[in-house]
Computed example of a mutant assay.
Amino acid sequence: MAKAARAAQAWRAYRDVTRPGSPGIGARLRAVPRLVGAVLNGTYPGMGRGKLALMGLGVLYMISPIDVIPEFLLLVGVADDFGVFLWLMGSLLGESGRYVDWERTHVRVLPS
């Protein structure tokens, strides 16, 4: 993904998080484990297992000592990890926001 596309995705995620009435960052981050569970058990139709797997690969790429562009190349080596980080955060914030919105209308809360 090109640098401009990653930056644009990060900007869209920021705009979405700060939109009035939109779930905040905290709500979105707390929703990530529920989102993963709902995707894996098939109850959330808004995201496929393929995209979830791609996000998981993004996490593995960032923590892996093996890189496409090694860190010893200084800025270039760090830039690829940062690009993956921007894509992952943009995707996670966007997907978890859509999940929270979906959850508000489709998940029935049982009385305590």
Rank of each mutant, 00 (worst) to 15 (best):
L52Q: 06
A8H: 06
T18G: 05
E103G: 01
R108D: 07
S112T: 03
Y61G: 15
A13Y: 08
M55W: 10
N41Q: 12
S96D: 09
M55Q: 13
F82D: 14
V68E: 13
I63F: 06
Y61R: 15
Y99K: 10
P70D: 06
G90V: 09
G58R: 08
P33R: 10
T105R: 04
N41V: 08
M1E: 05
R19M: 10
V84D: 11
N41R: 14
A27I: 00
Y61I: 12
V100G: 00
Y61Q: 15
S22L: 05
V84G: 07
S91M: 11
R15N: 05
F82K: 12
G48D: 12
W87G: 06
K51D: 03
V100D: 05
G21I: 08
D16H: 08
A5S: 05
R30M: 01
S91G: 15
G26L: 05
E103R: 09
R34Y: 02
D67E: 14
F82T: 14
D16R: 07
A7S: 08
L110T: 15
V109C: 00
P23H: 03
P70M: 03
A8V: 03
L74C: 04
L29Y: 03
Y44A: 02
A27S: 02
M55Y: 12
R98L: 09
L35Q: 08
L110K: 13
S64D: 11
R104M: 04
A13E: 10
A8L: 08
N41I: 07
M62L: 13
M1S: 10
D80L: 07
M89D: 09
V39Q: 07
L57V: 13
G37R: 15
V59F: 04
S112K: 15
I69Y: 14
W11P: 00
D101I: 09
G21F: 01
G37V: 04
V68L: 15
L35E: 11
L54Y: 06
L54Q: 05
G90P: 14
R30P: 00
L57H: 02
T18K: 02
P45E: 11
S64W: 08
G90C: 12
A7D: 09
D81A: 13
W87Q: 09
R12P: 00
M62Y: 06
G46T: 09
A4Q: 04
M55T: 02
K51A: 05
F72G: 00
S91E: 15
G50H: 07
D67L: 01
T43N: 03
E103M: 02
P45I: 12
S64T: 14
A27L: 06
A10K: 03
R6E: 02
I66V: 05
M1V: 06
R108W: 02
G48Q: 12
G48R: 10
V107K: 14
H106W: 05
Y14Q: 03
G24A: 00
P33N: 03
E95G: 04
I63D: 11
K51S: 04
S112P: 14
T105P: 00
D67G: 05
